[in-house]
Amino acid sequence: MTGYWQPLWRDLQVAFDQAAFWPHLAWKTVRLTYVRSLLGPFWITLTLGLQIGALSFLLAALLDTSSTLITPWVTLGLILWTFITSSLSESTSLIRVQSPYFFDRETSVSGFVAALLLRQSILLGHHAVLWLLVAVVFGIAPSALWLLALAALPVLILTLFGLCLCLCVLTTRFRDLQRLVDLVLMAGFFLTPVLWRQHDLINHDFIATWNPLTHLLAIIRAPLLGDPMPLHSLTISLVVAALALLAGALTLNTCRRNLISWI
């Protein structure tokens, strides 16, 4: 295939040629964190658990609500937020970290991004233990709605795939962008309903309404908490995912030719 999309097409083709490598890379990195460590990645889970415990306690006191209400909300918020930020922030150094691979043969940016997201999804699976724990403690029974949340997860992953593609390419060219991303993610943590809920904002709920992350979180969090799927958020999330993928495709397609010489 030639024409405008040739560079992207080629990148995907090579990813397909190396299809067996990507899952291997994702698992290898997870497995290496288990070497000579009893808990491995569960150390991150433990850290996250402590954070959840402390913040839930604090927020229940601050907002004057019961911890039965706030803890499940905060748990899901922090687990998903960790998934989002670690993926995005890891993508900003992806190509530089993996540069020896890029210099050894013609390889694929989309493949490396897929491996990154698979690895982060495996870690998300580790963190999900916290949610199960909270569900047991607060008597939240699993329901069919949980499957809906699982079905909504790919929408978030596809959005991240598009964004990570953009970021890993652009940060290779502009290193400052890496700092900028960290900055935006930090601000995003406070401006996104991760810890607080939209109705906690009196008169200022536009901060949440206009934030795409609100909706990406909502389509997974609502069903897990036993609420129906918010269709409005689902529509927005699907549009956001499509836009992110388009942006990623365009960026990679435009920059693929020169990318390696930017490393």
Partner: peptide
């Protein structure tokens, strides 16, 4: 921390 076996898998799969 990888064994020779792990590395062989890694490199072989990367080579396609």
């Amino acid at each position: 921390d990888l064994s020779g076996y792990d590395f062989a898998l890694d490199r072989g799969l990367f080579k396609g």
